[in-house]
Write a protein that binds this DNA or RNA. Structure first.
Length: 851
RNA sequence: GCCCGGGUGGCGGAACUGGUAGACGCAAGGGACUUAAAAUCCCUCGGGAGCAAUCCUGUACGAGUUCGAUUCUCGUCCCGGGUACCA
């Protein structure tokens, strides 16, 4: 008899079944085509949040859909397990990062399993596992051999009080986020990866990724920031030295009337004249006091100081003053800029401020600029003037010609400049992968021999947040014999940026237990590239660019044969929620508010901005509560039905009820009809009124297939199934046509499987099937069933809807026109008027144009 | 500033290549069932006029192209994201 829908029981049953049968394990020796589906792995922060639910629900729909379509689907899960929150927890609560991390993983794994996600759990790993570190360290050693990793001095944000390095986001208004002391810039020796060697390939690759969203590609292109220009050498008057500048506008060289150098420029010392000594020293001290963020904030006042030296413009021969300027950056271009005030807004303002000459060298068409009366720089196109032999040439052409001329005289050359910098990977932190290097006084930086890998993190450390990295104070860890000369040496105490781990984890999933190398080339080549990658838009540049870089490095190290890691990318929107705060207690969790008041003090809660759900703002919803109350299937369905995946989602639980109700409706539709359809086969054809339900069934199959495959419009796919269920409820001919009813019900159950797999399996079993619904495969639509005998056409007069007509599907144009004109309401509008034109859009409408 | 998105009922959203604007769901209102409630089932639901048939109006705003525009073009306003003294 009728069986109640109890989500908890159904979900437990099927989750156990999947675990016991290892339903989602895959191997490389399959007859089926492979499909690698991956969602960005989570940081084990402790609890699953709504963003995870959304991300993994989306992924699981695709995984189950592809599996039903007959693909050999790799769908793995793991943990991005190194990072600062573990250290902060240790500082605040005294728990060891390792313990904290693995405990979090254990509880999050349980939460994910309760969602019924179809992962191959055999392949699970955490990036803090020693096995993973071992292979990451080996990749680093190979990069070192290949010249792709190197060490250089670089400035970092440094808190002198905490004795530690701060990330940019840990600097608040120039002060340390923990102790409020002023942050300084400190020069440290750090390891870098030569991502700039791959700048061109990474850029060109953006044109070969049609499966990526255009905006992500645009962001990556901007980030790489390739610009074509020219390096020009300016001799310094009365000195042997030359200053090299980079410019994208060699066409304006005749207008260069002064020069601006970065205060850190290595030539600065040799350029300062005796009388400018004091002013320059003051200026440099002032700039040094500003941290990186202030320095590049844009609102900073443009300041400069004259060095006392002059450079010679190679084309005009004029002596031009050399300034230091706070807006010139040492790490872009050459750290020196030729200033053309007439044609660069920044130089224009600087020239006006310090009363420097302005020389117009490009005249826009139909205007004649005069330096004295200009109130802004002219940065557009025009013809060259005041430019000697180049006068009258269009400035775009002059870029080439002047560059060639300089080249022929040995005073400059065309160059390409990138905004992209090499990737600094050293972190002065404990909870990360140790960089496998040993420093020896005689042998220098010596790689740890492969046989000694992995370099393990010592566990007996004290984390206080002060005095720098605990590794740098851990003598047992630090003191080691030099692998080359056996003399006492010192181990590197820095660890890798955690982006290194996430740059190759997707490849390790192909062979998580492989013992001989980072990758089993055969397995990796079978599975890679990832066919569909799914994750948050916030990783559009960093993670996705680093992963692309690493893939190319692994290829060049002969560990892998693919060029790009992710063929198709789906960037999912954020889950947002309004923030609330109390005047006394700060941010409030939603459950700390009752009827608009803070439950701690009774004051009214103030409504804040709607923002991405985050622990720090306390605007979070615990998905567990949702799963407890409604079950995993409803939680999954709801997160998919609320909005298309790429859109931001403002959290609102009002729709949950509707999804739960819908599943109840599906359940009852099957249960209530079980007896009726017990012994019938699914329909192959249908006639008369029954054909309508059959048509709806096959239309739905078609629409859901198209919505999921490639478009990811899960909300409309679900809506289509809802329509079919509504049609089943409205179907009054079940007694006469049980086979049509069975076909419709089976279609609903199969189409819903990717969304609500537990309920689907249970219903499929109730429908009398031995094998699983997943094994039953994805339904195909019958094109013949889609064809209707009669069509409803809209009749317009002059573009306005005036009626609807029913015509046979095979009706000719003339027949349709006659029927349209016979419609009484249509006649009111065409009566006595001349018909100018009749437009018939097949299967849709007819538009009668009258005078 | 520059580069990407986006703006549709009370709400989330739909309309795929220019062809019935508002699918599906939520909320709201009404009804059936019930001693009652819950659950369930059915109906109404952009705004305005009308007893009704039906008509007018409506996709941020203003123009344009078209037989026909939420969709294409131009301009304006607003919102979101990215990025920035980038030479």
């Amino acid at each position: 008899m009728e069986k109640q829908y109890v989500p908890k029981e159904v979900e437990q049953k099927w989750q156990q079944n999947w675990q016991q049968t290892q339903a989602f394990r895959v191997t490389e020796d399959s007859e089926k085509p492979k499909f690698y589906l991956l969602e960005m792995f989570p940081y084990p922060s402790g609890r699953i949040h709504m963003g995870h639910v959304r991300n993994y629900a989306i992924g699981d729909v695709v995984a189950r859909f592809k599996r039903m379509q007959g693909f050999n689907v790799l769908h793995p899960m793991g943990w991005d397990a190194f990072g600062m929150p573990a250290e902060n927890a240790a500082i605040e609560h005294g728990t060891h990062p390792k313990k904290w991390t693995y405990e979090n993983i254990a509880s999050m794994r349980e939460q994910l399993k309760r969602m019924g996600l179809s992962y191959d759990w055999q392949r699970e790993f955490a990036t803090c596992d020693p096995e993973y570190s071992r292979w990451e360290q080996l990749i680093f050693l190979k990069m070192l051999e290949a010249g792709l990793a190197y060490k250089k001095g670089s400035s970092v944000n440094w808190c002198p009080d905490c004795q530690t390095v701060l990330a940019n986001e840990q600097v608040e208004d120039g002060s340390c986020w923990r102790c409020d002391n002023l942050v300084e810039q400190k020069e440290l020796d750090q390891w870098f990866f030569k991502i700039t060697d791959y700048a061109d390939e990474l850029l060109e690759g953006t044109d070969k990724l049609p499966g990526w969203p255009e905006r992500v590609l645009a962001m990556q292109r901007n980030w790489i920031g390739k610009s074509y220009g020219c390096e020009i050498e300016f001799p310094v008057a009365d000195k042997e030295t030359k200053i090299k500048v980079f410019t994208t506008r060699p066409d304006t060289l005749f207008g260069a009337t002064f020069m601006s150098l970065a205060p850190e420029h290595p030539l600065v010392k040799s350029l300062i004249s005796a009388e400018q000594q004091g002013a320059v020293a003051d200026f440099i001290a002032q700039v040094e006091r500003q941290d990186k963020i202030q320095r590049t904030s844009g609102e900073l006042e443009k300041l400069g100081v004259f060095t006392g030296s002059y450079a010679i413009n190679p084309l005009t021969g004029d002596q031009i003053p050399v300034f230091l300027a706070n807006f010139v950056l040492m790490d872009y271009g050459t750290g020196a800029v030729m200033a053309v005030p007439a044609h660069d807004q920044r130089d224009f303002e600087f020239a006006r401020k310090y009363e420097l000459p302005i020389r117009v060298v490009i005249q826009p068409e139909g205007e004649s600029l005069v330096a004295e009366t200009m109130d802004a720089a002219h940065t557009g196109t025009g013809l060259l003037v005041n430019s000697g032999q180049f006068d009258g040439i269009e400035n775009e052409a002059a870029k080439e010609q002047i560059a060639d001329y300089l080249d022929s005289r040995g005073e400059g050359r065309k160059t390409i400049n990138y905004r992209l910098r090499d990737w600094g990977v050293s972190r002065q932190r404990y909870w990360g992968t140790p960089i496998p290097i040993i420093y020896c006084e005689t042998c220098g930086a010596v790689p740890v021999p492969e046989k000694d890998l992995p370099v393990l993190l010592p566990e007996d450390v004290e984390l206080t947040g002060e005095g720098g990295s605990p590794l740098a104070r851990h003598q047992d860890f630090l003191q080691v014999a030099c692998p080359k000369c056996s003399q006492p040496a010192r181990r590197e105490s820095d660890t890798f940026d955690t982006f290194v781990e996430s740059s190759w984890y997707f490849a390790r999933y192909a062979c998580p237990d492989y013992q001989n190398a980072p990758l089993d080339k055969k397995a990796a080549n079978y599975w890679l590239p990832v066919d569909q990658y799914i994750g948050g838009i916030e990783h559009a540049v960093m993670h996705l660019l680093y992963a692309r870089f690493f893939t190319k490095v692994l290829r060049d190290l002969n560990m892998l044969d693919v060029d790009e890691p992710f063929t198709n990318l789906l960037t999912q929107g954020m889950v947002c929620m309004e923030t609330q705060r109390c005047a006394e207690h700060g941010w409030l969790y939603p459950e700390q508010i009752s009827s608009g008041n803070c439950t701690l003090c009774g004051r009214p809660a103030e409504l804040g901005r709607t923002e991405k759900m985050s622990k720090s703002k306390k605007n979070v919803v615990d998905p567990n509560l949702l799963i407890e109350q409604y079950g995993a299937d409803t939680a999954r369905l709801f997160s998919l039905f609320a909005a298309p995946p790429e859109k931001d989602l403002e959290w609102n639980e009002q729709g949950v009820e509707g999804c739960a109700r819908f599943l109840g409706r599906v359940w009852r539709a099957v249960c209530d009809n079980l007896e009726l359809i017990a012994d019938v086969e699914v329909a192959r054809t249908a006639e008369g009124a029954a054909a309508e339900l059959r048509r709806k069934t096959h239309q739905t199959i078609k629409k859901v297939t198209e919505d999921i495959d490639g478009r990811f419009h899960f909300n409309t796919a679900i809506a289509a199934v809802m329509e079919l269920v509504n049609a089943i409820y409205a179907f009054k001919l079940g007694q006469q046509h049980p086979e049509v009813l069975r076909e419709a019900l089976e279609a609903v159950v199969r189409l819903l499987n990717p969304f609500v797999p537990h309920a689907s399996e249970e219903l499929w079993q109730m429908l009398g099937h031995q094998q699983s619904v997943e094994a039953a495969g994805w339904p195909a639509f019958d094109a013949a069933a889609l064809v209707a005998d009669e069509l409803t056409l809209v009749v317009q007069v002059n573009g306005k809807v005036r009626g609807k007509i029913e015509v046979p599907a095979a009706a000719e144009k003339a027949e349709i026109e006659a029927a349209a004109q016979a419609d009484p309401n249509v006649q009111r509008y065409i009566e006595g008027k001349q018909i100018r034109k009749v437009i018939v859009v097949p299967k849709r409408l007819i538009n009668i144009v009258v005078a």
